[in-house]
Measured scan of single mutants.
Amino acid sequence: GATAVSEWTEYKTADGKTYYYNNRTLESTWEKPQELK
């Protein structure tokens, strides 16, 4: 079936920290989303 993983994109900030952005909800988070675990 369809999965929600594709909504999240992993980015890195200029200082090398990783964060996650959800293209559907426009939410961003420092925590790894449940969908990616």
Rank of each mutant, 00 (worst) to 15 (best):
E35H: 07
K12H: 08
Y21K: 08
T18W: 05
T18Y: 08
S6C: 15
N22Q: 00
E10M: 06
K32R: 09
A4G: 13
E35C: 13
S6F: 08
K12L: 10
T13W: 03
V5H: 11
A2K: 13
K17L: 10
N23G: 06
V5L: 13
D15Y: 06
K37N: 14
L36A: 08
K17F: 06
T9I: 13
W8A: 00
T29R: 10
K37R: 13
Y21E: 05
P33S: 01
G16N: 03
Q34L: 14
T3C: 14
T18N: 05
Y21Q: 08
E35F: 06
W8Y: 03
A4W: 05
L36I: 09
L26N: 15
Y21N: 02
K12A: 07
K32M: 10
T18S: 10
W8L: 01
P33D: 03
Y20E: 01
E31H: 06
S28K: 14
P33L: 02
K12V: 14
A4N: 12
N23I: 12
T9D: 06
T9L: 10
W8M: 01
A14R: 06
N22D: 02
G1E: 13
E35A: 08
S6V: 09
Q34T: 11
A14L: 09
R24Q: 10
E35T: 04
G16Y: 01
Y21L: 08
G1H: 14
E10Q: 05
G16S: 02
Y21I: 12
A4Q: 14
T13Y: 04
N23W: 14
T9H: 10
E10H: 03
D15E: 08
T9S: 10
D15N: 08
D15C: 12
E10G: 01
E27K: 05
Q34A: 14
Y20G: 00
L36M: 10
L26K: 15
T13E: 03
E27V: 06
E27L: 05
S28V: 15
G1A: 14
T3E: 13
A14D: 10
E27N: 04
T25G: 00
Y20R: 00
K12E: 07
G16Q: 02
L36S: 09
T18G: 02
E31D: 10
D15W: 05
D15F: 05
A2M: 13
A2T: 14
T13R: 03
N23D: 07
T29F: 06
T18I: 14
V5N: 12
K32H: 04
T29C: 07
A2P: 10
E27W: 01
V5W: 10
Y20I: 00
A4E: 11
Y21P: 02
Y20S: 00
K17M: 06
T13K: 02
Q34G: 11
S28T: 15
L26Q: 14
E10T: 07
Y20W: 15
Q34D: 15
E27F: 02
A2V: 13
E7Y: 06
E7N: 07
E35N: 08
G1M: 12
Q34I: 12
N23V: 11
R24M: 11
A2H: 13
N23T: 14
A2I: 12
T29N: 04
N22L: 01
L26G: 15
V5G: 14
P33E: 03
N23M: 11
K37Y: 13
K17S: 06
E10K: 04
N22M: 00
T25D: 02
K37P: 09
W8S: 00
A2F: 10
D15P: 00
G16H: 02
N23E: 11
P33F: 02
